[in-house]
Amino acid sequence: MGHIMQVKLLGVRGTLPVHGPEFARFGGATSCVLVRAGGETILFDAGTGLSGRAWRDFFPEKHGTLLITHAHVDHLMGLPVFPLLFDPTARCDIYLKTREGRTGREQIEALMSPPLWPIRTDSLKAAVDIRNVPDAFSVGPVAVEAMESRHPGGSTIYKITCGGVSLVYATDYEPESDAPDDFCAFAEGCTLLLLDAQYTRSEYERNRGFGHSTIPRSAAIARRCGAEQALLIHHDPTRTDRQLLALEATVRAQHPNVRFGRGGEEVFL
């Protein structure tokens, strides 16, 4: 039996991109995850992981769907240079929830407009459809569900399901406990959980309310919701490979099905 989903982590760094040899193993690109399932290409977020040429291998039909969690710049800064948007033979559906009185299109236009950026959305060559986020919808045979995250200004948590395989993408999420009822019900039994874990416990005390989880809390949530495997993402931009490896080893001693996501890695479900 073949794989139902191909998942490629294009960027797992939080807040801002970083570079240098001390970040090479886990990568320095900000949030972007690419999924191939049911003949569809789906992208979660459009951070700097969206840049580069890797996209060409995943869009043979020149059609993609972008599920954007929110318009904070680290999750959107790869969008203005996404090559698919400049191909007149391509189509792209972008889902971004209306927030603070601004539609998804208005949020993207706030970034893609002078003096912040020279190219406006009306200059894009592809057929681009920017849509609000319903609670449930489909992308071809892929079912998509959405729930609201706890994050300043709001953010969307997504779940996609195809052929009995499910993936939950929950970045920029500050859970209120080690077993949040709403999230655990949403993610229950998922095949793969991608979950924010930016802070250590001590860092969280200084950053409470910033909209991110801790490494121990996210590992506990992965166990509580029964995820078959979990990758913790949105790594703090100051965290080096050496530090991440040490923290990961501590987590895996208690939670063997939990790892830290690495930029560029692929998971087949």
Rank of each mutant, 00 (worst) to 15 (best):
M1P: 10
G2C: 09
Q6G: 03
L10A: 10
R13E: 01
A24H: 14
C32Q: 04
F44E: 00
F44N: 06
A46N: 02
E61S: 10
E61D: 13
H63C: 12
L66Y: 04
H70S: 12
H75T: 11
L76C: 07
L79E: 04
L85M: 15
D93G: 06
I94R: 11
L96H: 10
T98W: 03
E106T: 06
I108M: 09
A110D: 14
L111M: 15
I119P: 01
T121P: 03
L124I: 11
A126K: 02
A127Q: 14
A143E: 14
M147G: 02
H151T: 07
T156H: 11
G163A: 07
S166Y: 08
Y169V: 15
E176K: 08
E176T: 10
G189P: 03
L193V: 09
L195R: 07
E205Y: 05
R208N: 11
F210L: 11
G211H: 05
P216W: 09
S218L: 02
A219S: 14
I221E: 05
A222R: 13
A227S: 15
E228S: 13
H234P: 06
D236P: 00
T238N: 13
L244M: 08
L245C: 13
L245F: 13
E248Y: 11
F260A: 01
G263W: 05
E265W: 10
